[in-house]
Design a protein around this nucleic acid. Sequence first.
DNA 1: GTATACTTATATCAAGTTGATATATCGAGT
DNA 2: ACTCGATATATCAACTTGATATAAGTATAC
Lengths: 183, 183
Amino acid sequence: MIDDVILGILMEGPMSGYDIKRTIDQSVGFFYSASFGSLYPALKRLDEQKLIEGEETGSSKNKKLYTLRPEGRDRFLAWLAEPLTRARNEHMLKIFFYDYLNAELRRGRLQSFSGQLQGELHHLRAVQEIVDRETEELEDPGAYAHRLSVLTYGLRSLETVLNWVQDLQQLPVNQPSKGTDES
Amino acid sequence: MIDDVILGILMEGPMSGYDIKRTIDQSVGFFYSASFGSLYPALKRLDEQKLIEGEETGSSKNKKLYTLRPEGRDRFLAWLAEPLTRARNEHMLKIFFYDYLNAELRRGRLQSFSGQLQGELHHLRAVQEIVDRETEELEDPGAYAHRLSVLTYGLRSLETVLNWVQDLQQLPVNQPSKGTDES
DNA sequence: GTATACTTATATCAAGTTGATATATCGAGT
DNA sequence: ACTCGATATATCAACTTGATATAAGTATAC
């Protein structure tokens, strides 16, 4: 997960580990965070796997500049092209980088994602109805108000994501400028 | 985290580890999940800390029934009474159990949580405005459409949470039936 | 009636993540 | 010269995940 985020950030150009951390905090920070404890081991991993290249700057003590290698770029674009899931906000992360994905694939992914969300929505609405019916039979329905409200919130959140994704589907097509077609 | 969820589930009555897992999946499963790899070690921990009591059922092989001890109940209610944060959906988890919290404390927590959310909302709207202004100056704003949309989604999500919490604040007061005041 | 397959039930492990803490440099101001 | 805050990397214990292993109980079919 963090590996792909790092590669995605490095698409913009070479950066130090500290810069990457700051970039993450300032851009996707409100829904995804990377700690140093995960960032530095990840940079080491990616370097060993030849997906990025780290070189000493000579200037400040240990400062290294990390550059994306072509293999890393491929790996990132492959990750980006995978289907969207809501697990751990991965959909937000991928869509944040979606301007790098070719328009056709993007259209397909958004299409099936919104279908998936509609499915979940129907399911949750069905659950809601059952729960509502069961609740009516209780002597004191108010005693479970908060417990039940969480389901309502889940529904509203789902509706919010779905609306957002549907808006994205209406976006005019715009081929990525930096030539990022996987093919 | 999982410790407090387990304690909260056990408020309903004694259960096996497997039952707890199933209960979690079926109730808060759509936003919080517990794996066996975290559940069983947690049960062991809680047992050692004398917060729950596990006893062999004698029936099936290793099956144990876990019962909440008074110390565990105290620990759970103390956790519940802590301020709400959105870190890792903790607000949903706590509010799911909020019928156990005394009405006065609950009111205070919801009050400050909604204030906190409004603050975040103002901040994010300010960021949005700055970003919008910077975007206008670009030659091809469409090339960043997805990247920018994530911010919009963040805003809508925040609005959704805030609306939900404000609805909760309108709920008629209902003292918990099972006598759960911390005092 | 017994083989087949699913559910219940607990346990373990490698790999990864978090949050805290440690250490040191650099630049800006006083 | 001194101090403060930002830059920069590293490490660690505790915890979580996802996968895998094991085995007993239960239902279904043939």
